[in-house]
Protein backbone atom coordinates (compact mmCIF):
# COMPACT_ATOMS: atom_id res chain seq x y z
CA UNK A 1 0.00 0.00 0.00
CA UNK A 2 2.73 2.37 0.99
CA UNK A 3 4.56 1.64 -2.18
CA UNK A 4 1.41 2.25 -4.20
CA UNK A 5 1.04 5.69 -2.71
CA UNK A 6 4.52 6.62 -3.69
CA UNK A 7 3.87 5.62 -7.27
CA UNK A 8 0.74 7.71 -7.23
CA UNK A 9 2.65 10.84 -6.23
CA UNK A 10 5.11 10.20 -9.01
CA UNK A 11 2.39 10.20 -11.67
CA UNK A 12 2.12 13.96 -12.32
CA UNK A 13 5.88 14.27 -12.53
CA UNK A 14 6.23 11.27 -14.81
CA UNK A 15 3.41 12.47 -17.04
CA UNK A 16 5.07 15.86 -17.25
CA UNK A 17 8.46 14.40 -18.10
CA UNK A 18 7.09 12.07 -20.73
CA UNK A 19 4.75 14.58 -22.36
CA UNK A 20 6.92 17.67 -22.29
CA UNK A 21 10.50 16.39 -22.22
CA UNK A 22 10.89 12.90 -23.61
CA UNK A 23 8.21 12.97 -26.29
CA UNK A 24 9.31 16.33 -27.76
CA UNK A 25 12.93 15.18 -27.77
CA UNK A 26 11.97 12.01 -29.61
CA UNK A 27 9.89 14.06 -32.04
CA UNK A 28 12.79 16.42 -32.73
CA UNK A 29 15.05 13.43 -33.31
CA UNK A 30 12.49 11.82 -35.60
CA UNK A 31 11.91 14.97 -37.64
CA UNK A 32 15.63 15.51 -38.04
CA UNK A 33 16.15 12.14 -39.74
CA UNK A 34 13.18 12.33 -42.10
CA UNK A 35 12.41 14.49 -45.13
CA UNK A 36 9.26 16.54 -45.65
CA UNK A 37 7.45 13.43 -46.92
CA UNK A 38 8.30 11.41 -43.81
CA UNK A 39 10.91 9.13 -45.42
CA UNK A 40 14.11 8.32 -43.62
CA UNK A 41 17.08 10.42 -44.73
CA UNK A 42 20.32 11.85 -43.39
CA UNK A 43 20.25 14.63 -45.95
CA UNK A 44 19.46 17.27 -43.32
CA UNK A 45 22.68 16.54 -41.46
CA UNK A 46 24.57 16.38 -44.71
CA UNK A 47 23.24 19.81 -45.56
CA UNK A 48 24.18 21.21 -42.18
CA UNK A 49 27.76 20.00 -42.17
CA UNK A 50 28.25 20.56 -45.88
CA UNK A 51 27.29 24.23 -45.81
CA UNK A 52 29.59 27.04 -44.79
CA UNK A 53 26.58 29.10 -43.78
CA UNK A 54 25.46 26.72 -41.06
CA UNK A 55 28.95 26.09 -39.75
CA UNK A 56 29.63 29.80 -39.57
CA UNK A 57 26.30 30.28 -37.84
CA UNK A 58 27.26 27.65 -35.24
CA UNK A 59 30.61 29.35 -34.66
CA UNK A 60 28.79 32.68 -34.36
CA UNK A 61 26.43 31.25 -31.76
CA UNK A 62 29.27 29.72 -29.74
CA UNK A 63 31.33 32.88 -29.94
CA UNK A 64 28.51 35.19 -28.81
CA UNK A 65 27.45 32.78 -26.05
CA UNK A 66 31.06 32.65 -24.89
CA UNK A 67 31.41 36.45 -24.86
CA UNK A 68 28.10 36.91 -23.04
CA UNK A 69 29.07 34.34 -20.40
CA UNK A 70 32.55 35.78 -20.00
CA UNK A 71 31.38 39.36 -19.48
CA UNK A 72 28.61 38.28 -17.13
CA UNK A 73 31.11 36.31 -15.08
CA UNK A 74 33.64 39.13 -14.96
CA UNK A 75 30.98 41.52 -13.70
CA UNK A 76 29.11 39.12 -11.44
CA UNK A 77 31.96 37.50 -9.52
CA UNK A 78 33.27 40.63 -7.79
CA UNK A 79 29.72 41.83 -7.28
CA UNK A 80 28.73 38.57 -5.62
CA UNK A 81 31.85 38.65 -3.48
CA UNK A 82 31.23 42.22 -2.31
CA UNK A 83 27.61 41.31 -1.65
CA UNK A 84 28.66 38.71 0.92
CA UNK A 85 30.59 41.45 2.76
CA UNK A 86 27.70 43.93 2.88
CA UNK A 87 25.18 44.82 5.52
CA UNK A 88 21.52 44.39 4.51
CA UNK A 89 22.39 41.62 2.08
CA UNK A 90 18.76 40.65 1.58
CA UNK A 91 17.95 44.17 0.44
CA UNK A 92 20.76 44.26 -2.12
CA UNK A 93 19.86 40.80 -3.35
CA UNK A 94 16.31 41.95 -3.84
CA UNK A 95 17.54 44.86 -5.95
CA UNK A 96 19.48 42.44 -8.13
CA UNK A 97 16.53 40.10 -8.57
CA UNK A 98 14.05 42.90 -9.17
CA UNK A 99 14.76 43.32 -12.92
CA UNK A 100 13.94 39.66 -13.51
CA UNK A 101 10.37 40.40 -12.53
CA UNK A 102 9.99 42.56 -15.59
CA UNK A 103 9.08 40.93 -18.86
CA UNK A 104 12.04 40.32 -21.16
CA UNK A 105 10.33 41.93 -24.13
CA UNK A 106 9.66 45.05 -22.12
CA UNK A 107 13.32 45.29 -21.13
CA UNK A 108 14.39 44.87 -24.74
CA UNK A 109 12.07 47.69 -25.79
CA UNK A 110 13.43 49.88 -23.01
CA UNK A 111 16.92 49.35 -24.38
CA UNK A 112 15.73 50.34 -27.83
CA UNK A 113 14.70 53.66 -26.31
CA UNK A 114 18.00 54.06 -24.48
CA UNK A 115 20.34 53.13 -27.34
CA UNK A 116 18.49 54.74 -30.25
CA UNK A 117 19.80 57.68 -32.28
CA UNK A 118 17.66 60.02 -30.20
CA UNK A 119 17.91 57.91 -27.09
CA UNK A 120 19.18 58.79 -23.65
CA UNK A 121 22.79 57.75 -24.23
CA UNK A 122 23.12 59.92 -27.32
CA UNK A 123 21.38 62.84 -25.64
CA UNK A 124 23.92 62.56 -22.85
CA UNK A 125 26.82 62.42 -25.30
CA UNK A 126 25.49 65.48 -27.08
CA UNK A 127 25.91 67.48 -23.87
CA UNK A 128 29.64 67.13 -24.52
CA UNK A 129 29.28 67.91 -28.18
CA UNK A 130 29.76 64.33 -29.29
CA UNK A 131 27.67 63.50 -32.32
CA UNK A 132 25.03 60.79 -32.24
CA UNK A 133 26.72 57.40 -32.18
CA UNK A 134 25.06 54.49 -33.90
CA UNK A 135 24.62 51.99 -31.08
CA UNK A 136 21.39 50.15 -31.72
CA UNK A 137 21.73 47.19 -34.10
CA UNK A 138 25.42 46.61 -33.34
CA UNK A 139 27.21 43.60 -31.86
CA UNK A 140 28.06 45.78 -28.91
CA UNK A 141 24.43 46.56 -28.16
CA UNK A 142 23.46 42.91 -28.52
CA UNK A 143 26.08 41.74 -26.03
CA UNK A 144 25.36 44.61 -23.65
CA UNK A 145 21.66 43.82 -23.42
CA UNK A 146 22.23 40.06 -23.20
CA UNK A 147 24.74 40.56 -20.37
CA UNK A 148 22.36 42.91 -18.58
CA UNK A 149 19.58 40.35 -18.73
CA UNK A 150 21.74 37.42 -17.61
CA UNK A 151 23.60 39.05 -14.72
CA UNK A 152 21.12 38.12 -11.94
CA UNK A 153 21.32 34.47 -12.98
CA UNK A 154 25.09 34.54 -12.51
CA UNK A 155 25.24 36.58 -9.30
CA UNK A 156 22.77 34.44 -7.36
CA UNK A 157 24.52 31.04 -7.56
CA UNK A 158 27.95 32.60 -7.01
CA UNK A 159 26.67 34.58 -4.04
CA UNK A 160 25.21 31.40 -2.52
CA UNK A 161 28.44 29.50 -3.08
CA UNK A 162 30.61 32.22 -1.52
CA UNK A 163 28.24 32.74 1.39
CA UNK A 164 28.54 29.02 2.15
CA UNK A 165 32.32 29.20 2.52
CA UNK A 166 33.40 29.14 6.13
CA UNK A 167 35.18 32.49 6.79
CA UNK A 168 37.65 30.61 8.94
CA UNK A 169 39.09 29.01 5.80
CA UNK A 170 39.90 32.40 4.33
CA UNK A 171 41.38 33.60 7.60
CA UNK A 172 43.49 30.45 7.84
CA UNK A 173 44.82 31.06 4.37
CA UNK A 174 45.76 34.62 5.30
CA UNK A 175 47.29 33.56 8.61
CA UNK A 176 49.45 31.06 6.81
CA UNK A 177 50.92 33.90 4.77
CA UNK A 178 49.12 33.54 1.47
CA UNK A 179 48.89 36.71 -0.56
CA UNK A 180 45.49 38.07 -1.53
CA UNK A 181 45.89 36.60 -5.00
CA UNK A 182 46.91 33.20 -3.64
CA UNK A 183 43.94 33.15 -1.31
CA UNK A 184 41.67 33.87 -4.22
CA UNK A 185 43.33 31.45 -6.62
CA UNK A 186 43.72 28.46 -4.29
CA UNK A 187 40.95 28.91 -1.73
CA UNK A 188 38.11 31.19 -2.76
CA UNK A 189 37.85 30.29 -6.46
CA UNK A 190 37.87 26.48 -6.07
CA UNK A 191 35.42 26.64 -3.19
CA UNK A 192 33.04 28.89 -5.10
CA UNK A 193 33.37 26.87 -8.32
CA UNK A 194 30.03 25.02 -7.95
CA UNK A 195 28.26 28.40 -8.03
CA UNK A 196 30.30 29.58 -11.00
CA UNK A 197 29.56 26.32 -12.78
CA UNK A 198 25.81 26.53 -12.42
CA UNK A 199 25.99 30.21 -13.38
CA UNK A 200 27.88 29.37 -16.57
CA UNK A 201 25.44 26.63 -17.45
CA UNK A 202 22.45 28.85 -16.75
CA UNK A 203 23.80 31.50 -19.12
CA UNK A 204 25.88 29.83 -21.80
CA UNK A 205 23.22 27.34 -22.77
CA UNK A 206 20.28 29.73 -23.33
CA UNK A 207 22.65 32.24 -24.96
CA UNK A 208 23.42 29.72 -27.68
CA UNK A 209 19.93 30.05 -29.06
CA UNK A 210 18.90 33.64 -28.26
CA UNK A 211 16.82 34.85 -31.13
CA UNK A 212 14.47 37.53 -29.91
CA UNK A 213 17.32 39.84 -28.92
CA UNK A 214 19.15 39.17 -32.16
CA UNK A 215 16.22 40.72 -33.98
CA UNK A 216 15.09 43.45 -31.61
CA UNK A 217 18.53 44.68 -30.51
CA UNK A 218 20.80 43.12 -33.13
CA UNK A 219 18.48 44.03 -36.02
CA UNK A 220 19.14 40.58 -37.55
CA UNK A 221 22.74 41.58 -38.10
CA UNK A 222 23.65 39.04 -35.45
CA UNK A 223 22.52 35.63 -36.68
CA UNK A 224 22.58 32.63 -34.36
CA UNK A 225 21.23 29.11 -34.66
CA UNK A 226 18.11 30.32 -32.87
CA UNK A 227 17.34 32.65 -35.78
CA UNK A 228 17.69 29.79 -38.22
CA UNK A 229 15.40 27.53 -36.21
CA UNK A 230 12.74 30.22 -36.06
CA UNK A 231 12.95 30.70 -39.79
CA UNK A 232 12.73 27.01 -40.63
CA UNK A 233 9.76 26.48 -38.35
CA UNK A 234 7.80 29.68 -38.90
CA UNK A 235 8.56 30.96 -42.38
CA UNK A 236 9.41 28.04 -44.60
CA UNK A 237 7.72 25.42 -42.40
CA UNK A 238 10.57 23.00 -43.10
CA UNK A 239 10.33 21.40 -39.68
CA UNK A 240 12.82 18.71 -40.57
CA UNK A 241 15.73 21.06 -41.12
CA UNK A 242 14.67 23.10 -38.11
CA UNK A 243 14.68 19.95 -35.99
CA UNK A 244 18.13 19.05 -37.28
CA UNK A 245 19.49 22.39 -36.11
CA UNK A 246 17.72 21.75 -32.82
CA UNK A 247 19.48 18.40 -32.41
CA UNK A 248 22.83 20.02 -33.09
CA UNK A 249 22.07 22.72 -30.52
CA UNK A 250 21.22 20.02 -27.98
CA UNK A 251 24.53 18.27 -28.69
CA UNK A 252 26.39 21.55 -28.23
CA UNK A 253 24.66 22.05 -24.89
CA UNK A 254 25.57 18.56 -23.71
CA UNK A 255 29.19 19.24 -24.61
CA UNK A 256 29.11 22.43 -22.54
CA UNK A 257 27.61 20.56 -19.59
CA UNK A 258 30.29 17.90 -19.86
CA UNK A 259 33.11 20.42 -20.02
CA UNK A 260 31.92 22.41 -17.01
CA UNK A 261 31.03 19.25 -15.08
CA UNK A 262 34.40 17.61 -15.69
CA UNK A 263 36.36 19.96 -13.47
CA UNK A 264 34.21 19.21 -10.50
CA UNK A 265 34.72 15.48 -10.87
CA UNK A 266 38.45 15.89 -11.22
CA UNK A 267 38.64 17.94 -8.07
CA UNK A 268 36.62 15.64 -5.85
CA UNK A 269 38.82 12.75 -6.86
CA UNK A 270 41.83 14.57 -5.48
Amino acid sequence: MKNNKRVFFLVPYLLWIVLFVILPLLLIGWYSITDTNGHFTLENYQRFFGSGTFLRMSLNSLWYAFLITLFTLVISYPAAYLLTKMKHQQFWLLLIILPTWINLLLKAYAFIGILGTHGMVNQFLQLFGLGPVNMLFTNFAFILVAVYIEIPFMILPIYNAIADINPAVIQASEDLGASKWQTFRYVLWPLSWPGVESGIQAIFIPSLSLFMLTRLIGGNRVITLGTAIEEYFMTTMNWNMGATIGVILIVMMIVVMLITGQRKKGRTRK
Binding site: G116, T117, H118, N134, L136, F137, L216, G218, N220, R221
Partner: peptide, 18 residues
Protein backbone atom coordinates in the same frame (compact mmCIF):
# COMPACT_ATOMS: atom_id res chain seq x y z
CA UNK B 1 24.03 50.15 -46.22
CA UNK B 2 21.69 48.03 -44.13
CA UNK B 3 21.06 49.22 -40.60
CA UNK B 4 18.71 46.42 -39.60
CA UNK B 5 16.36 43.78 -40.94
CA UNK B 6 13.23 43.90 -38.80
CA UNK B 7 9.49 43.43 -38.85
CA UNK B 8 6.76 45.63 -37.36
CA UNK B 9 9.27 47.79 -35.47
CA UNK B 10 10.25 49.34 -38.79
CA UNK B 11 7.21 51.57 -38.58
CA UNK B 12 8.24 52.98 -35.22
CA UNK B 13 11.85 53.62 -36.29
CA UNK B 14 10.87 55.46 -39.46
CA UNK B 15 8.43 57.62 -37.53
CA UNK B 16 11.09 58.44 -34.93
CA UNK B 17 13.62 59.47 -37.62
CA UNK B 18 15.96 56.61 -36.69
Amino acid sequence: NVKAIIADELKMYMIQNE
